[in-house]
Computed example of a mutant assay.
Amino acid sequence: MRTNHFTANINGINVFYEFHHDSHSSGLSKPTLVMIHGFLSSSFSFRRLIPLLTKDYTVLAIDLPPFGKSEKSKKFVYSYENLARVVIALLDKLSIKRTVLIGHSMGGQIALNVSNQKPELVEKVVLLCSSGYLKRLPARIVYSSKIPYFYLYLKFWLARQGPLKNLLNVVYDHSLIDDEMIEGYTQPFYDDQIFHALTRMIRDREGDLASDILKKIETPSLLIWGEDDKVVPLEIGKRLNKDLPNSHLITYKKTGHLLPEEKPQDVTENILDFIQTSY
């Protein structure tokens, strides 16, 4: 598998992304699989999926600002609508016109925003435990984020939660958690600038797409869920499946929120079947 790392300035912010391709596959003649990670995560969360998918397809994994290795700007607007524009602009810069979007958690909501803004760019969407129906944060929290040094409170709160506690909450089988996983999900937070950017994100995040918008997204969508997801419960998946007019839901028992880590082989088979079948 060949992996190339790049950084590009997209809509005023530096975005890190990776291209993965197996030189023996015919992936270049097929749609590009675009991996979009979740909140407080990065393209690292797809590390088990990517090697399996690149046997047949070219994979583009993006670190959404301010996460992973992308810029952690204090001035960028971190709304989902604007993050979707960044994805669209990056695809345009790379001359990618055929895609299958694969979004995990918050990344699923960004994928839906891309499909809503530019449906002709997206052939299919795969939503892995996608966030859905979240409202904008309460006004008191938005206003509190404008208090000087609020970012220090945010840093303290996240440190108090700790990476291990967070992983225990998102993974059903705790034996999967090892030092490599803990380090991979902790590393982006060594840069203090992320806490400034997250403070800005609290103010900018406008909430998830409403039902009336979801019902107009006709892109074929595959929803895959862990039945023991504590972060985005299965009920959200069932509701999305009902609202998205051209969707199908698959669930896994004894599986939590971190599907790409917990069920890489099964999820890969689901994705490939979905892409290669008329739907």
Results as ranks from 00 to 15, higher is better:
residue 223 L to D: 06
residue 122 V to I: 05
residue 166 N to A: 12
residue 276 Q to M: 03
residue 266 D to A: 13
residue 250 I to W: 05
residue 151 Y to L: 14
residue 272 L to W: 10
residue 220 P to M: 01
residue 256 G to C: 12
residue 238 K to T: 11
residue 6 F to P: 02
residue 263 K to L: 08
residue 181 M to T: 11
residue 240 L to I: 02
residue 190 Y to T: 14
residue 240 L to N: 06
residue 224 I to F: 11
residue 210 A to I: 09
residue 150 F to Q: 01
residue 29 S to N: 03
residue 211 S to T: 07
residue 195 F to I: 04
residue 211 S to Q: 08
residue 118 K to N: 11
residue 234 L to R: 08
residue 133 Y to L: 04
residue 268 T to R: 12
residue 256 G to E: 09
residue 82 N to D: 02
residue 114 V to I: 04
residue 71 E to N: 05
residue 271 I to R: 09
residue 112 L to A: 11
residue 192 D to N: 14
residue 46 F to P: 10
residue 251 T to E: 11
residue 72 K to D: 04
residue 239 R to H: 09
residue 49 L to I: 13
residue 171 V to M: 13
residue 219 T to R: 02
residue 127 L to A: 07
residue 198 L to Q: 08
residue 99 T to P: 06
residue 144 S to Y: 13
residue 164 L to I: 02
residue 235 E to P: 01
residue 223 L to K: 09
residue 213 I to C: 07
residue 273 D to G: 10
residue 245 P to C: 08
residue 100 V to T: 02
residue 235 E to K: 04
residue 166 N to Y: 11
residue 15 V to M: 03
residue 7 T to K: 10
residue 198 L to V: 07
residue 90 L to S: 11
residue 22 D to E: 00
residue 215 K to N: 05
residue 59 V to C: 00
residue 189 F to E: 05
residue 73 S to M: 03
residue 250 I to S: 10
residue 154 L to F: 15
residue 209 L to Q: 05
residue 25 S to P: 00
